[in-house]
Structure formats: structure tokens, C-alpha cells
Nucleic acid binder design. Sequence first.
DNA 1: TTAAACTTTCAAAAAAAAATGAAAGTTAAT
DNA 2: ATTAACTTTCATTTTTTTTTGAAAGTTTAA
Lengths: 167, 167
Amino acid sequence: MQFNEAKNKFVQTWGALGSQWGINKTMAQIHALLMISNEPVSMEDIMEELQISRGNASMNIRALMDWGIVYKEYKAGERREFFTAEKDLDELAVKISRERSKREIKPALKVLKEVSSIEANQTEEERHFVAQTTKLYDFVLKADNVLDKITEYKDNWLTKLVVKIMK
Amino acid sequence: MQFNEAKNKFVQTWGALGSQWGINKTMAQIHALLMISNEPVSMEDIMEELQISRGNASMNIRALMDWGIVYKEYKAGERREFFTAEKDLDELAVKISRERSKREIKPALKVLKEVSSIEANQTEEERHFVAQTTKLYDFVLKADNVLDKITEYKDNWLTKLVVKIMK
DNA sequence: TTAAACTTTCAAAAAAAAATGAAAGTTAAT
DNA sequence: ATTAACTTTCATTTTTTTTTGAAAGTTTAA
């Protein structure tokens, strides 16, 4: 396989994986592109490489920066902006975990707490609802905390986790 | 909050959470509905409760069964089919992990292995590509293995994990 | 201060994903 | 073997999500 073919395949695959996990394809592709680039890339180059419009590029780069996994860089004597991705994978995974927890898990937990706290003990149906949503709340809360603890190790959290599990 | 309001809120929230993680809304909503139901539910009832068409209900129930988290049940003397969800949360999480690993992670790993194995050491750009995709392959493989190990505990894996991490 | 070089925004268009519903298929009781 | 009761399929429609591109906004150099 040639370099260009491999590069393209990687970008496409990362994009598809993103979609499957609820991240828009272009956003994942831009991230892929920056991940494998050894130097900062301009918006122009991203547009060119992925064949996307300026608006699309701008919005998705912004989204990646909001996630904290892409950084803006300036080159001396250059007017335009360049972008780089967080290349440390431990750090990348930590940031993605934290964001998803904040944006999606925490709000869901809030709702689970609410709905599991209703006064409803009249019917078997209602009792089951409360029991099940309570279990779910406990489970999700615990999972969220575990994730938090794991990613607190920061450097090499994955390796440290492997060690803990194997012992 | 009333029971019906809470039930509705839970179903909507579970549906939204599904979307954010790449699972179609209706599929997640059907799952939510079955999770909180204390007895098997007919397709008719699912359609009625979620206000969806027969085709939509049928296809998404099928998808949930393919995931192994919803089961078909027969009631004595009843012609039509009823459905129940896997209600054990440890088991549910294990099944979802296994499926996502099989469907998404494993194929991605295959591609990562391919693209990181190209003979490309001419330019700095090519060397960086190989280095980065190799790191990514190692990382994803390790993460996938960790997930596998954790879910092998089966019963109470989450609690057991908490214990391991705290020690 | 002007203007050129660049970025962002957002209404409209396009593309992708999901839902519908009627026809085809299946099952099981008589 | 027939038919009523039910489920599945899939071409078409609808909805949702994503993308475009032109106008507005911003920044910096002269």
C-alpha cells in the first residue's frame, strides 16, 4: 500500500468510526488528518485535502477546539492560522471522556435521579419503574466515577489500569 | 412528578442519549420502554406508546434482538409475540461492549494494522504517519483488551472494578 | 484609517438517516 | 388446505443532520 492510499484509508476509517459513536464524520476526519500530520495544517489545506467547504471546515475545527483536542497555532510571519491535534493518546482519551461525561452522562444522571424519585408505589408497574431507574442511576453514577478515577492517573492511565486489573 | 410524566421523560432521555452515542433514537426508546416494563410488551403496545409505525417497531425490535439485549417471549394461548429487555445492568453493559467491540473496534483495528504497516520511511511525513498509527493501534488494542478483561468478571464487574481501582 | 487577508456565521440546499405503510410473507388453528 | 392473525420487508416519503457559500465580521499591516 502506498502512503497516500494508507493516509486516505485512515482518514475515512476514523471518520466512519466517529459517525458510529455520534461524532460527525467531517469532525472526525479533520481530527484524523491532524493526528497524522507532523506539522500544523492550515484551514486551506484541510479544505483541499478533505474536499469540504470553508464553512464546514471552520465549524468543525471550532468544535474540535471546544473539545480541547485541537489547538490553534501561529507561524511567525504568517497571517493565517494553523491547527494541530493533541497527539498524546492518553491525554486525548482523557479529554474525550471528560467532555462526554460533562455533556451527556451528567445531564442523563440528573434526569435519572429525578424520575427515580417520584412518589409512586401504588401499582406493581410504578414500583418496578422506580426500582429499575434507581438501579440505572446507581450503575451509571458508579461507571461515571470509575471513568473519572481512571483518567485521574493522567499519564499512562491505560497501562496503570492493565496492571491493576491483572494483579 | 407523575408516573406517566416520569416514564415519558425517561424514554425521551434514553432516546436522546442513544442518538448521541450513535444508536438510533427509536431503538433506544423501545429499549427504555422495555427496561421499565414489569411484564412483556406486545409490538402493538410499543407502537401505541411511542407513536411509531409497525415497520419501524419491527425493524428496531429486530435490531435490539440482534444486539442480544431484547428477548422475544410467548404467552400461553396468545398468538402474538411479546418482548422483554435484559434488565440486569451488568449483563446489559457486557453485551453492548461485546457488540460494539465486534462491530466497530475490531474492524477499525484491522485497518489500523494495515495502514501502520506500510513501507514508508522516505519522508518525515511518512515516518510520522507510521509512528502515529502504530501508537494508535497499540492503544486501541490495549483498551479493547482491558474492556474484554473487565467484562469477563460478568457478575458485578463494575463493583469488582471499583475495588481493584481503589486498592 | 484603509484595505487586504483571513475567519466566522447562518440561511438555504443537499445529503443522509429514519420512518411509513402497504404488500408480501409466515404461522397456526380449524 | 384455508384463512385469519400476526410479522417482516422495502420502495417511497419524511425528518434530521450536515454541508455549502456568500455576507458579515475580524485582524493586522501599511
